[in-house]
């Protein structure tokens, strides 16, 4: 019996540093669509949390989900890598397609899915082990045990998460828990990068951090956009405006179910939204 998968060369998506994209096409060509959701509704027991959301995410772009608390942004985010499976009583209807393949189907391997769709959480959650082991954790679980390849992979991932210079001297001695909050979050990003995902989900990744750390994470996200598709949930509208290419605004209906009000290029959503609700929220009139 093969122990685990054949893990290809230690690989990370190549980053080509290009000029910032001037304008983002929302109506992407079908080939550029990384994720598409069709009529996604999520409920816990008989309470509907998210109702009928359909949107697309372009490859190598950043989509920001904004909206008031309880509008179901995080819940919606979690259906991209099926983390909702872990919540008893949660059920998801509709389709979530990754590269045209519906991830909600019963015979989809969630393990495979989560390797391709990584996630960074609101509170940094490094494992209680060394920095090195934290980053090597995912690759090791996929059967990569070659020492030299692992070393390369850890170094590359930490560099890409802009943490390498701060931790390179005590990679193996220092526990991931001994880092500062901002460093911990970058470690968690490195940990995700090491599993070589195509999509990275970020659930309010900077909400537990100080302003300086927040800026570093945002900077990092803009760099990562060159190679990864990123979906971020944020409470912070300035953050959404600063980092994202496309913004989707969620709010709550009368029955407290979250729904999508509108989605469009970030510049447009923040300057001339087509819905009154969006404008009220953006201008701070509610939420």
């Amino acid at each position: 019996m093969p122990i685990t998968a054949v893990y290809p060369e230690p690989v990370l998506r190549r980053v080509e540093v290009t000029a910032p994209r001037a304008a983002v096409q929302v109506a992407a060509r079908p080939a550029d669509i990384k994720i598409a959701t069709e009529h996604v509704s999520i409920s816990y027991g008989d309470k509907v949390a998210v109702r009928d959301v359909s949107l697309t995410v372009q490859d190598r772009s950043i989509l920001a989900l904004i909206g008031p608390s309880g509008s179901g942004k995080s819940t919606f985010l979690r259906c991209f890598n099926r983390m909702n499976d872990l919540i008893p009583g949660a059920s998801v209807k509709g389709e979530v397609c990754l590269d045209g393949e519906n991830v909600m189907e019963a015979d989809v391997s969630v393990v495979e899915l989560r390797r391709r769709v990584g996630m960074v959480f609101q509170r940094p959650n490094p494992f209680p082990m060394s920095i090195y082991e934290n980053v090597a954790y995912g690759p090791r679980r996929r059967g990569l045990n070659d020492r030299r390849k692992l070393n390369d992979l850890v170094e590359t991932s930490l560099k890409r998460a802009a943490l390498w210079d701060e931790v390179k001297d005590d990679l193996r001695r220092k526990s991931g828990l001994a880092l500062s909050g901002g460093q911990q979050q970058r470690l968690c990003i490195a940990r995700v990068l090491a599993t070589d995902p195509e999509v990275i989900l970020m659930d309010e990744p900077a909400s537990a951090l100080d302003p300086v750390s927040t800026l570093r994470i945002e900077e990092l996200m803009r760099e990562l956009r060159e190679a990864y598709t990123i979906v971020i949930v944020t409470h912070n509208m300035q953050q959404a405006a600063r980092v994202s290419d496309v913004t989707a605004f969620f709010t709550m209906a009368d029955d407290r179910a979250g729904y999508l009000v509108e989605v469009g290029p970030t510049g447009q959503i923040f300057t001339r939204p087509s819905e009154q609700l969006t404008e009220d929220y953006i201008s701070g009139r509610f939420g």
């Binding site: 060369e9 391709r116 992979l153």
Partner: peptide
């Protein structure tokens, strides 16, 4: 280091059969 694109493993692939 490289690039893992090219043929993408299907989500229903058997890549991680042992651990599963």
């Amino acid at each position: 280091i490289g690039r893992s694109s090219g043929a993408k493993p299907s989500l229903k692939g058997k890549a991680s059969r042992g651990s599963i």
